[in-house]
């Protein structure tokens, strides 16, 4: 990979300052960035590690009842510590990558990268989470803007993610057999004011909400409520692991399973 200057600040303010230099990039757990750099797909002049910033780590429940997760919190910590408050989210975190990856990869890194097959975007969108950066709060509905594209601006880092805790929720991941990313993943969360269904892995536009299912499930939170619906294969990803039609079919199957598991 190309060489770069490595910096590991101890505070958000220092990290933001370090990211001010030209071609600097933040480094979360590096579990996606480092393999990409090995292929020389990125050439940062400087990598600013976020792993030394204590204020960006940890899991806690806020006064408003939302679950707060620091942007630099590794998946393994979320898997271990979020379970008491938001089991579906902990379950999702416990199946990202593999154990070693989960010890390094972070929620902020995953959401900033917004891989179309990553798990966390479906939880954030499916929970109506708030992405808190060093200078603003972004609603999940505004944050995800297509494959590998987010509302983040250059040098902006995710310091915290706030998840409203649902009454019931579940995540169903159907793995792509090689990468073990989601070939399709569906996150279903039932809140007092309605149900949210977020789908990852399937769409060429990245994570999205399946609004027909949300409407149906908001009036009847049962697997059979989705029976009459279908997802159009248009715009779904087709690759060597699955056709658009297959992914469309999985969305429905996994939604039903998520609802059944949540209920």
């Amino acid at each position: 990979m190309y060489n770069f200057e490595f910096e590991k600040p101890g505070s958000i303010a220092d990290a933001v300052a370090a990211l001010g230099s030209e071609d600097a990039m933040p480094l979360g757990g590096g579990q996606t960035l480092i393999p990409a750099m090995k292929q020389r797909l990125n050439a940062p002049s400087k990598l600013v590690s976020l792993s030394g910033i204590a204020e960006m780590k940890g899991v806690c429940v806020r006064d408003d009842g939302a679950l707060s997760i620091g942007g630099a919190t590794p998946h393994a910590v979320v898997a271990a510590e979020a379970g008491a408050h938001y089991p579906a989210l902990a379950g999702l975190a416990s199946h990202i990558g593999d154990p070693a990856v989960r010890n390094r990869g972070t929620i902020g890194g995953s959401l900033a990268n917004n891989d179309p097959a990553a798990c966390y975007p479906s939880a954030a969108l499916g929970s109506g989470a708030t992405i808190v950066t060093n200078n603003r709060e972004i609603a999940a509905d505004d944050y995800f803007q297509g494959m590998f594209t987010t509302a983040l601006e250059e040098g902006e880092i995710i310091v915290e993610v706030r998840f409203p805790i649902p009454e019931k929720a579940n995540y169903q991941k159907f793995v792509q057999p090689a990468s073990r990313f989601a070939l399709t993943g569906v996150f279903v969360a039932k809140y007092a004011d309605g149900v949210r269904v977020a789908v990852t892995g399937a769409s060429e536009e990245g994570v999205f909400r399946w609004s027909e299912a949300e409407a149906a499930l908001s009036s009847d939170f049962s697997a059979s409520a989705v029976d009459g619906l279908s997802v159009s294969p248009d715009g779904m990803i087709g690759d060597i692991h699955g056709t658009p039609a297959y992914r469309a079919s999985l969305i429905k199957t996994l939604t039903k399973r998520a609802v059944a598991a949540a209920a």
Partner: peptide, 10 residues
Amino acid sequence: VKSCTMFAAE
């Protein structure tokens, strides 16, 4: 951890 996916500096 996967030592090939972590910088020594980390």
